[in-house]
């Protein structure tokens, strides 16, 4: 019996070759005609907004969503092993995970009430 993860390396290798090869091929095959306007940031007929890399601004809401996501993603990750070993862990596991879900639900309701999920 061999390691079941080894075949993944083969697929990753083929996928990486494809991903790199495509971009390289177009860089080689494609024409190169210099035009200053072509290299500017896209904007609909007006001067592009100065928006340098690392200096671009976006609403703080996205950050909040990402933080909330981490909490619930960790919850989901905890649920998976319990679901797989449901029969082994029996009643203890069931009660423990229900308590865990209840404890996660409290901050969920809190954030909901505090307007964390509002998107104005």
């Amino acid at each position: 019996m061999s390691n079941p993860y080894v075949p993944l390396l083969f697929l990753m290798g083929v996928a990486a070759v494809l991903a790199l090869g495509g971009v390289a091929a177009s860089a080689i095959i494609g024409p190169k005609r210099y035009n200053k306007a072509k290299l500017e940031a896209y904007e609909c007929g007006i001067e592009p907004t100065p928006n340098a890399v690392g200096g671009g601004r976006f609403p703080i809401k996205y950050y909040l969503v990402a933080m909330t996501f981490i909490i619930f993603d960790i919850e989901v990750v905890f649920l998976y092993p319990w679901a797989v070993e449901f029969r082994t862990l029996a009643v203890f596991g069931l009660v423990a995970i229900l308590a865990f879900i209840a404890m996660i639900t409290v901050p969920f309701i809190y954030e909901w009430r505090r307007g964390g999920f509002e998107w104005d």
Partner: peptide, 14 residues
């Protein structure tokens, strides 16, 4: 067609 097109790297890009 996409393969034959020019590969642009915009000026402001990282």
């Amino acid at each position: 067609k996409l393969l034959m097109k020019e590969d642009i790297t915009v000026k402001m890009a990282d």
